[in-house]
Computed example of a mutant assay.
Amino acid sequence: MVYCVISAAMSTQELFVAAAHKCLSAGRKSLSVPQSRDLAAQVLAVDLGLKPALLYDSNGASADQVRQYLSSLQSSQLVSKSLLTLDLNGNALIVNPVTVRSNVEQLFHDGNVAVIDVCHSLEKPTIADPLRRELKSMAHDLLLLLRGFEHLTEAEKPHYVGEKSDEWNLCTVFGLLLGYPVTYWFDQTKSFENCLSMTPLIVTTASATWQADTAAHRCCLYSFSVPAVLLKEIQSNLEHWRLCLQERFQQQNVLKDLTVCQSTVILPSVCL
């Protein structure tokens, strides 16, 4: 086991950058300083409850390397001990167990998370019933998993999400874990393709500035899309998400200058 040791004499940003450089190299590919700072801001957002989880996709680092990185940050008291690393079918996530469970529960209780059916057989995307059998079963299993993690601390290995997750639609699960107000679903037993080709999509992004030491770093905290044809139907979901994000943002002083904006894209193919 390789442990990441970093000097306490470094500045805050230098500590984050050093941890990323030591723990997250994949072959000869290390994260650049801007990438390391961006990752740091994302992890801080998870720790502050501004977002429930972070899906690590910066390079080919393994889930165990991501765990080493998180443990290094925790040992330096840069983030809390409550954050955990999940290994979900080879995908590494850093999660805030309490925040992410609360987000998944919204699917059942208050309808603040909309599920959009984008099955390839449909002429256009439609709103799905979040309590349909497949979705309800998946969300129930996910909640049981998350509740079991709440009393744990970061361990030697990433917490592996077992074989049950093989049946989950990961596109839907990632939308729930990452705190989106909308998430896509399709019947993967029939096809992994979708009906979003050449469909106008409204992309919502939320960004903020991490001001640490003498340097400021701007990063994107959220980015998700909604089919333009369904925008009116789920406008209330988007507004509730924006207001909740603003409220949480005002309760901390690590990240500043929150900006939420929208743009429209049309793509020949959309990979989910």
Rank of each mutant, 00 (worst) to 15 (best):
S223V: 08
K157N: 13
L196D: 00
E163N: 12
T189C: 04
V182F: 10
E163S: 12
D166C: 14
N237W: 07
A206K: 02
A212Y: 05
Q211I: 11
T205K: 10
V173A: 10
P200M: 10
N169T: 07
V203L: 10
Y180N: 10
N237G: 09
S225H: 03
E154A: 15
S165G: 14
F224Y: 10
V229C: 04
C219K: 00
F149P: 03
L176H: 08
P227E: 06
N194R: 02
F149D: 12
Q211M: 05
C171Q: 04
G148N: 15
V229R: 02
V203P: 03
M198R: 05
G175I: 11
V161I: 14
R147N: 14
N169W: 00
A206M: 09
D166T: 14
A206R: 01
A155E: 15
I234F: 03
S197Q: 06
A216Q: 07
G148A: 15
Y222S: 00
S236V: 12
W210P: 00
C195A: 09
A208T: 02
Y222E: 02
S225D: 05
L201R: 07
G179L: 02
H217V: 08
E150Q: 13
R218P: 00
L196N: 01
S236P: 03
G179V: 00
L178D: 01
G175K: 09
Q188V: 09
D187T: 08
L196P: 00
K232Q: 14
L177H: 12
Y180L: 05
S207A: 07
A215R: 02
C195I: 09
Y222C: 02
F149K: 14
S225N: 03
L146G: 11
V182P: 01
A155S: 14
F186Y: 07
V161W: 12
L152Q: 13
